[in-house]
Computed example of a mutant assay.
Amino acid sequence: MEKKVLKNKLLLFILSIVMSIPVAYAQETTYDEKTKQELIDLSKQKWQWMADKKIESLDELFHQESVFVHMGATMNKEQELNTIRSGGIQYKHTEIQETSIRFVGNTAIVLNKIRLTAIVGGNEVVNPFMVTEVYVPIEGKWKLGSLSFTRLLGN
C-alpha cells in the first residue's frame, strides 16, 4: 500500500513538473520603446539600402533562410539580393505612411503601409503596399526573416 501511495505521489510530482514546462517557455518577452524605435529605424534604413543597392548591408541584415514575397514572385535571400543588384527591381523611393510593431515571443513583426516608387522591367511603377517584415534576434542583432508585399486596393 505504501509503495502505491509513494508511486502516485511521484507520478503526481513528475506530472506537475511536465505540465509547468510549457508555461515557462510560453511567456513572452516584452520590449521597450527603445527596442521598437531601433526596429523602426532598421526598417527605414533597409528601404534606403534597397534604393542605394547596398548589397553588403542587406546581405548582413537578411537571414540566410529569409523569404521575400512580391506581387509576382517568391524569392530566397540570394534571389532577392541578385534582383536588387541587377536592377530587376530598382527601388527609387519608399514613402512610409504608417508603421506598427508587434512581438510574438522574441519575433518582431513590423507592418509598414507604404507608397513605393520602383522601376520594374524598365517601367516606373507606383504602388500602395502593406509590407510585413519579420525580424528575429540572432547573436544580439535583428535579422530579417521575411518581407512580404501586399498590394492595397483603392490607394
Rank of each mutant, 00 (worst) to 15 (best):
Q45K: 15
H70L: 14
A51Y: 11
G72Y: 14
F62G: 02
V69I: 15
Q37D: 12
E78L: 08
I40P: 00
A51N: 09
F62I: 02
Q79D: 12
W47P: 01
E38N: 14
M75L: 14
G88C: 05
R85P: 09
F62N: 01
Q48V: 14
L42D: 05
V69E: 09
Q37Y: 10
M71D: 12
Q79F: 05
V67S: 07
S57F: 04
L61K: 05
E65N: 13
M71N: 14
M50A: 12
D52G: 07
M75T: 10
K53V: 12
V69W: 09
I40C: 01
I84C: 03
S66N: 06
A51I: 02
F68W: 15
W47Y: 11
S86K: 07
V69Y: 13
T83F: 10
K44D: 08
S57E: 15
G88V: 03
L81G: 08
A73S: 12
Q45I: 13
G72F: 09
G87V: 08
M71A: 13
I40Y: 15
K54Q: 15
T74R: 14
K53E: 13
N76P: 04
S57H: 07
Q64Y: 14
H63C: 01
Q45C: 08
N76G: 07
I55D: 03
E60G: 09
S43N: 15
H63F: 13
E65P: 02
E78D: 10
N82V: 01
G72C: 11
Q45F: 12
L39E: 08
Q79S: 06
M75I: 06
V67K: 06
S66G: 11
Q45V: 03
H70G: 03
K36H: 10
N76C: 04
I84H: 04
L42T: 14
F68G: 07
H63G: 10
L42M: 12
V69L: 10
F62C: 03
I55F: 01
M50W: 11
G88R: 03
L61T: 11
G88Q: 10
D52I: 00
L81A: 04
Q48D: 15
W49V: 05
K44F: 11
Q79N: 07
G87Y: 09
K36L: 10
N76A: 09
H70D: 01
Q48G: 00
N76K: 01
K53N: 12
E78M: 05
D41I: 06
